[in-house]
Measured scan of single mutants.
Amino acid sequence: DVEPGKFYKGVVTRIEKYGAFINLNEQVRGLLRPRDMISLRLENLNVGDEIIVQAIDVRPEKREIDFKYIP
């Protein structure tokens, strides 16, 4: 289970104008929005990159997770 405030290693699987989709595993995916990136820009991410993200909002009923990147 993903818990708000905890850090997780994930893989960038898709990049859109509104953010990057990060997979923690095959069943768990969330969104990293540009506003939640500190010292990292969306255009510097590539599909396949491994990054450490912090879960900031977890909505299991909608199967949605918002992430934050903190270097």
Rank of each mutant, 00 (worst) to 15 (best):
residue 1 D to N: 14
residue 1 D to M: 15
residue 2 V to Q: 03
residue 2 V to C: 04
residue 2 V to R: 02
residue 3 E to V: 15
residue 3 E to Y: 13
residue 3 E to W: 12
residue 5 G to V: 03
residue 5 G to R: 07
residue 6 K to S: 09
residue 6 K to F: 08
residue 7 F to E: 06
residue 7 F to Q: 06
residue 8 Y to T: 01
residue 9 K to A: 10
residue 9 K to E: 06
residue 10 G to H: 00
residue 10 G to C: 04
residue 11 V to L: 11
residue 12 V to K: 00
residue 13 T to E: 08
residue 13 T to M: 09
residue 14 R to T: 08
residue 14 R to F: 07
residue 15 I to K: 07
residue 15 I to Q: 01
residue 15 I to W: 02
residue 16 E to C: 09
residue 17 K to E: 13
residue 18 Y to K: 05
residue 18 Y to P: 01
residue 19 G to R: 03
residue 20 A to S: 03
residue 20 A to Q: 00
residue 20 A to T: 03
residue 21 F to Y: 14
residue 23 N to D: 12
residue 23 N to L: 08
residue 24 L to S: 01
residue 24 L to H: 01
residue 24 L to V: 09
residue 25 N to R: 07
residue 25 N to Q: 06
residue 26 E to G: 13
residue 26 E to F: 13
residue 28 V to P: 02
residue 28 V to W: 15
residue 29 R to L: 10
residue 29 R to C: 09
residue 29 R to A: 12
residue 30 G to P: 01
residue 30 G to Q: 01
residue 30 G to N: 01
residue 31 L to M: 08
residue 31 L to I: 11
residue 33 R to G: 03
residue 34 P to K: 13
residue 34 P to W: 10
residue 34 P to F: 08
residue 35 R to K: 14
residue 35 R to M: 10
residue 36 D to R: 04
residue 37 M to H: 03
residue 37 M to R: 01
residue 38 I to Y: 12
residue 38 I to N: 12
residue 38 I to P: 09
residue 39 S to F: 12
residue 39 S to M: 13
residue 39 S to E: 15
residue 42 L to N: 03
residue 42 L to E: 02
residue 42 L to T: 04
residue 43 E to K: 12
residue 44 N to V: 09
residue 44 N to I: 08
residue 45 L to E: 00
residue 45 L to T: 01
residue 45 L to I: 11
residue 45 L to R: 01
residue 46 N to D: 11
residue 46 N to Q: 15
residue 47 V to C: 06
residue 47 V to M: 07
residue 50 E to K: 14
residue 50 E to M: 15
residue 52 I to N: 05
residue 52 I to H: 06
residue 52 I to M: 11
residue 53 V to W: 02
residue 53 V to A: 02
residue 53 V to P: 00
residue 56 I to C: 06
residue 58 V to W: 08
residue 59 R to K: 07
residue 61 E to F: 06
residue 62 K to V: 12
residue 62 K to R: 14
residue 63 R to S: 12
residue 63 R to F: 12
residue 63 R to K: 14
residue 64 E to I: 11
residue 65 I to C: 04
residue 66 D to F: 13
residue 67 F to C: 03
residue 68 K to V: 09
residue 68 K to N: 05
residue 69 Y to I: 04
residue 70 I to A: 11
residue 71 P to Q: 08
residue 71 P to N: 08
